[in-house]
Write a protein that binds this DNA or RNA. Sequence first.
DNA 1: TAGATTGTTAATCGATTAACAATC
DNA 2: TAGATTGTTAATCGATTAACAATC
Lengths: 176, 176
Amino acid sequence: MLDLNPAQVRKDLAYFGEFGKRGVGYSVSRLRDHLIEILGLQTRRNVGIVGAGGRLGHALALYKGFEKRNFKVVALFDKDPHVIHQPVGDSGTIHHISELPTIVRQLSIEILILTVPAEAVREVFDYILLSGVKAVLNFAPVKLNSTEEICVHNVDLAIELESLSYHLNRPGVNLP
Amino acid sequence: MLDLNPAQVRKDLAYFGEFGKRGVGYSVSRLRDHLIEILGLQTRRNVGIVGAGGRLGHALALYKGFEKRNFKVVALFDKDPHVIHQPVGDSGTIHHISELPTIVRQLSIEILILTVPAEAVREVFDYILLSGVKAVLNFAPVKLNSTEEICVHNVDLAIELESLSYHLNRPGVNLP
DNA sequence: TAGATTGTTAATCGATTAACAATC
DNA sequence: TAGATTGTTAATCGATTAACAATC
């Protein structure tokens, strides 16, 4: 499914330890447990959404898929005074971003999802750095770089479309 | 900004042609034009959203950022009879997915964005294959593989969080 | 013992980087 | 000519794959 050959799978697993028995194979359920452990997926992670007043933030706040994968949206933030105190689903009401550092610590939030417009990113990111959070998933079309302090994953929807546009121009170069 | 060295930039450009003058450098605006040409971003691409009745589909349908990057959402689709004929922004009303193949051809849609629940993916993807569209951006948590026929990019939000979870477990391994 | 499968070492391949001739 | 910068070839590095001993 992932286009890997057996040697590569064994090599990658070897990086973390020995999980199989020579001549026998791997126990699927025990291997699964090891992978959950390696990825840190045993413990539920608390997540906050910054820009929850926007449509994307709203959609993600109400998305049921995160709970199934052991992530829980526990707090919502926005800059716009009009949406503050608005309730969204069962993640409580929207807080002003100035409260972010305090609430992140109070609720042990480990990951922040950023869904603010490009213009707001710099200001909001300062609050995020202040909060001490170590992981950010950024949907704003502004690349944020990871540092020793904080790990950022950037998801830029327009770039995804641009990448598909490139493939449309050269048929046959589809495959991975 | 991208952590590339000069040699790598020259190498990558060389793959597509010669865009600079030795001893002088690159003309920024002409290089920009060449890159736009290579990525196929001169022409506006028509986009359809499948699963526009859901919150994510709805958010993407109303997102202003795509137009700025030369993509236009021209049609919306869903399976749910309750949302059919509902208007969303200025992309018209929501059509039933059975109309997808016809409308894709009528409106010259080149890219489809998939925002349906996991259970609906298989059924919907059959209509997509039927439509002959060559590029798909899939947000459903079900990996779809590219073929000679169709190029699929998968964006799985839960996997992004899981990846961040892994980094939370090993501080210092943040950098790219 | 014969067959199978792991973990690991060695060989291969491709991508990144360094070096340099060509050019302004 | 001296200095700078490209395009390209060669060297280096790392990742993938193949081979094989260890083990059941």
